[in-house]
Write a protein that binds this DNA or RNA. Structure first.
Length: 117
DNA sequence: CTGATGACGGCGC
DNA sequence: TGCGCCGCCATCA
């Protein structure tokens, strides 16, 4: 049952990346590299950033994508930075100094659930 | 083809 | 935690 039927699923890297981004639920965040990984493109963090920059879909939760250390990727003075902060707060996430708490590890769900807050 | 650039990441101090 | 350096990738001049 190899679903890889050549001419039916042209799933481009961009498509998988966008899908991975859309998969990030409200109230949660993810790093560029993490998204790339989930999209099956390890090492393409910069590609994720590029896609986000090109993207025009207003429904895309772009604000949930941060750098691996939880920092917002835009310059603190930029309008984009402020906008992202706003959107995150709307999601219930509270950025401290342009930074949010990133999920410890994606593999250990236990840790995430048990992690002290 | 070479070098610069950028919504990045990981490591070391 | 904050910073700087260097590695990676895709574009573009």
């Amino acid at each position: 049952m190899l679903t890889r039927n050549m001419k039916s699923t042209p799933t481009t890297p961009e498509q998988r990346i966008l899908a991975a981004i859309r998969a990030v639920p409200r109230g949660q965040v993810a790093g560029y590299g993490a998204i790339a990984r989930r999209a099956g493109l390890p090492g393409r963090a910069r590609l994720v950033a590029r896609i986000l920059g090109q993207n025009e879909d207003p429904g895309l939760p772009w604000h949930r994508i941060l750098r691996s250390d939880g920092r917002i990727a835009f310059p603190p003075e930029s309008a984009e930075f402020a906008e992202q902060c706003r959107r995150l707060r709307a999601d219930g996430v509270e950025p401290r100094n342009g930074r949010v708490r990133m999920p410890e590890d994606e593999g250990t769900l236990d840790a995430a659930l048990w992690a002290p807050r």
